[in-house]
Design a protein around this nucleic acid. Structure first.
Lengths: 341, 341
DNA sequence: AACGTTACTGGAAACGTTTCCAATTTGTAT
DNA sequence: ATACAAATTGGAAACGTTTCCAGTAACGTT
């Protein structure tokens, strides 16, 4: 059974094609009675307009792309959910695309925009530190970089961004450990993949140490990837060095859990022997035992605001914006005040 | 700057439109020299064919839909990854669509197929227990139900499926607990949302008890949703009943972690005082402390085989298939052998 | 040189919409 | 009744492809 098209519906209703089109798109210039009649017929015959044809004809495709770095990242799951919600509220639809860790994000984004005739694109995570300004200028479609790695001196007029203050937040986390009396504080950061964000959080760590008069030692640092396993291994290396660490700061919750497991598996107690602080604020960290103290990122705000900014751009209501969201230190069970020996 | 189209490329190359089209689509009837020349021009001018136009013209759209129930389910993440990989290997592209828990899955699937002119669709999870056979017959597009809830007496000729033996696997898990000497074994199952699968796993639980001569008591049962929190609460209710449970079987790993947290938070020891077994085999269960014994589902196989079945159907090589995958009990730290008192 | 065969190539219709523009109907004020 | 404006409607072009069909070029065979 061949699917019906707009012509068939027009014939059945005894009206012109354009009238049916106007009904479908909620254009005003149709008599209420006619509109109702056509609506009923569309309903009755279960007619669904062909998306490809619509997109082909329209310059404004009603599609928003969401490019996500890494499907395994539970921190992004909530953000995506709120993004999708808001996008469909606006009558647009979401085209979700997952990038793996080796991809050239800006290139994939541009290709996606062209190929799918996107009206706008949100990049969640991803690395935009090596991009060429001309790439972004050529892309006339609004782009919002959300929680992404962005090079500092990029022309701010050609993209929007929404981020947290990674350095400040990390510093707050480590400062908290210092205030609890910790001095030997290890750190596990994400490496290459995540250059900029990892680096910023690492800088926050260093600043907090400095502020508290603690000397930074390179041996306290381990590099890991964004997986349980990688951080588990990194923690073991740290422990093997016998540095008498009393605390460790890990730059994501998933990794904090991997690290915590390594600690516990050796029979060490958290927080009695080692305190640990994570970063992100995913639910996993709360349900780990002991629950993990962490920096909570405002995930829902990330989603909502990203879409808001994008639609402001699409509707040409505003210029590109650069928003900084607040984080919050969630104190839980994984940190202990050090009593002076 | 307006994007180039196939006409522009044809003009630049000094050939006909159809020749360019043939190059794009790797059709054979083009002289190698011409092909190379056009390829270079396409590359140089960074031309990307318009997807909407292609889909509009083609009856075979090269799009495969993947409908996923619940974005938060980490068990699905791996499956999706392997699905995407295989689909793009075949030169098709994946349209990912997330359903929330209240959706009517078959209706959403059908709409998606029509709207996006999909060539096939894979449903990951989702509930197909209340569907009408006519809906599936009307849908002429191949459909594969993967790890989904399917009504038993559905006509097997009109859809493909790939599942595990939920009842058997659950029974194996509980039997393991029994063999360790446990008799008072609680159970937390998913409720309404997940009617069929939850019921099957529950039946497995009952069968294992029966086999081991243990009487089933309703008070050992709690219903939960697929979240940490819900299962955390359910476990607390179970504990509040003071049934002297020595073990608990939880029908998913996420929920097992929620339950384990409830146990540990009360100061009870796992596995010393209570043993726990989960279901799914997600990575997080391995990194929880103590690591959680669980039923491992073959996630990668789920993905790969789903795509294989789908392409067999698309290419009309085979009829609808119904595949059962094997599970495996992963013995870890969360279970203890009961020494007779 | 004439022919048949095969390898390429180009033109044009078609896919199902949206939208501009013109045409028709309706309503309102004189 | 008439004139004019406003509301509603229909026709046709256009969006960028693919593919059928017809046509040309190249080549070997007689």
């Amino acid at each position: 059974m061949k699917d019906l098209n707009i012509k068939d519906i027009a014939k059945i209703a005894g009206v012109g094609i354009s009238t049916v089109s106007r009904v479908i798109n909620n254009h005003p210039d149709v008599k209420d009675k006619t509109r109702e009649r056509i609506r009923k017929i569309i309903e009755e015959y279960n007619y669904i307009p062909n998306n490809s044809a619509r997109n082909l004809k329209r310059t404004d495709s009603k599609n928003i792309g969401v490019l996500v770095k890494g499907i395994f990242n539970p921190f992004f799951a909530k953000i995506i959910q709120s993004i999708e919600e808001k996008i469909s509220e606006e009558g647009y639809s979401t085209i979700l695309h997952y990038n793996d860790y080796n991809s050239n994000d800006i290139e994939v984004a541009i290709e996606l925009v062209k190929e799918k005739k996107l009206r706008g694109i949100i990049c969640l995570g991803g690395n935009f530190t090596n991009i060429d300004e001309s790439q972004l200028i050529d892309l006339e479609t609004p782009i919002v970089l959300s929680s992404a790695d962005i090079i500092q001196d990029l022309n701010k007029e050609i993209f929007s961004s929404i981020v947290i203050e990674n350095e400040k937040a990390a510093s707050e986390a480590v400062d908290y450990l210092c205030k609890l009396g910790h001095e030997k504080i290890g750190i596990i950061v994400t490496g290459q993949e995540d250059k900029c964000i990892g680096k910023l959080r690492f800088q926050g760590y260093k600043k907090a140490l400095e502020k508290n008069g603690i000397e930074y030692k390179e041996e306290f640092l381990e590099i890991g990837k964004y997986t349980f396993k990688s951080s588990f291994d990194a923690m073991n290396k740290l422990l093997d060095k016998e540095l008498n660490l009393t605390a460790v700061f890990v730059t994501s919750d998933i990794m904090a859990i991997g690290a915590a497991k390594a600690i516990l598996k050796r029979g060490l107690k958290i927080p009695d022997e080692i305190s640990i602080v994570g970063f992100d604020g995913i639910e996993y960290a709360e349900y780990f035992h002991p629950s993990i103290t962490t920096i909570k990122q405002p995930d829902e705000d990330f989603g909502k605001r990203s879409v808001e900014i994008l639609f402001d751009l699409i509707k040409r209501k505003k210029e590109h914006q650069h928003i900084i969201l607040e984080t919050q230190l969630l104190k839980r069970e994984s940190c202990k005040k050090l009593t002076s020996k």
